[in-house]
Design a protein around this nucleic acid. Structure first.
Length: 126
DNA sequence: ACGCTGACTATTA
DNA sequence: CTAATAGCCAGCG
């Protein structure tokens, strides 16, 4: 009975439709469930939604993460290599790395250290 | 309306 | 080993 979904302010929002809107919401939901000190990949989230081939869409959804409530910890989402590819999309580009280090995730050269060990699989949690 | 771009990933050369 | 290509889908010019 999800009463309120974090309505994404995308113009594709349709009053009677709920197709793409649902996908974006799911991405944000999963991202919010990432435990502190852990990281995951776009593909993992996409796979959890059933659209593993659309990892790009996950990244695109993240583009609107800042306008969603509550805010989505996009800094915990990195690419498959553990590289902070989206760091340049944060307010200061270095904020992502800063937040990760603050949560206990070691970052070296825009890359998560021991990424494989810190990797959090949404499918495992669900 | 058509085409390019993009916070990705997997496959092939 | 690294480099290039294809598949994915929505936003924007």
């Amino acid at each position: 009975m999800p009463a309120r979904e974090p309505k994404v302010k995308l113009r594709t929002v349709k009053p009677s439709g709920e197709s793409d809107d649902n996908f974006f919401s799911l991405v944000f939901e999963v991202a919010r469930q990432i435990p502190k000190g852990r990281v995951t990949s776009y593909g993992a989230i996409a796979a959890a939604l059933g659209t593993k081939s659309s990892a790009r869409m996950v990244g695109w959804a993240m583009n609107g993460c800042h306008r969603v409530k509550p805010k989505v910890p996009a800094h915990r989402v990195v690419n498959r290599n553990g590289m902070l590819t989206g760091k340049f999309h944060f307010d200061p580009p270095g904020m992502m790395e800063k937040l990760l280090k603050k949560e206990g995730v070691k970052v070296k050269n825009d890359q998560v250290v021991d990424f494989k060990n810190l990797f959090w699989d949404p499918l495992e949690s669900l």
